[in-house]
Amino acid sequence: MGALDLLSRDEAPVREASITVRDLSVTYPNGFTAVRDASFSLGPGTICALVGVNGSGKSTIFKAIMGFVKPSAGEVRLCGLPVDQAVGDNIVAYVPQSEDVDWNFPVLVETVVMMGRYGHMNFLRVPSRTDRRKVDEALERVGMSAYRKRQIGELSGGQKKRVFLARALAQEGRIILLDEPFTGIDVTTEAAIIDLLRDLRASGHLMLVSTHNLGTVPDYCDQVVLLNRTVLAAGPTEKVFTPKNLERTFGGVLRNFELGGRELHDDDDARKVTVITDDERPLVFYGDAPPQKHDRDRPE
């Protein structure tokens, strides 16, 4: 790498966060095509939900965005850059669905979170004061400060998950990929993390979050991508996250019931209630109106 190259990298303007997935197909080595012709694109200041049944290709899309599986057709671009370059430039942080790590490895919780900062350090990986502060903050945000001196294997499942979230936060990628971050996480922590995602959105980050908690999606996601081995619908939550689309995405799998107007309550409100649930957190529609935002998470 020449001096010129270093210079131009320093002077390059901070690119706005974006993900462009164009005609993406992914075929695994066993010949199974998990995703076919998927396209969507997302810009800065966005939280996007990736929703679909088990095996619909959510994790596959994440792996393709990280460059861990190679597309058999189509391409992914991050901030306009090819995937490998974006990953090398420390633009993306990724929390996989399940961590494939060695739980007996002699590292403390704080060391694991510090690993998120490595991309910001020189090649000897000596942490600066800023790095330490970011680690403290990240641990604080996920409520794991009290456990920072524990060996990583000595935590509960949900606590481990929170530590890896903290690591992604400390990494400060402009793009953050979270593959089912809320499974096994308690409600309080989930609310705290969602608050955090909103803050990051306000500062221009782009987050792609896969989830089965349909009920909370309208609370914090402004965009939705519905997936079933290809993109069924993608766009703003109000437009895309409708009973009809969800019906299409989930087929017969959803627990879905409706209560008619009169049977529900005897007054002039003729709207029916539709309850859709894929997981423990149901999604409730009043009439055919766009999904309501729940008040419980929103500050007054």
Binding site: D100, V112, M115, G116
Partner: peptide, 9 residues
């Protein structure tokens, strides 16, 4: 410790 993370940074 975590090859996936190593690759992702």
């Amino acid at each position: 410790f975590d090859e996936t993370h190593a690759k992702s940074i």
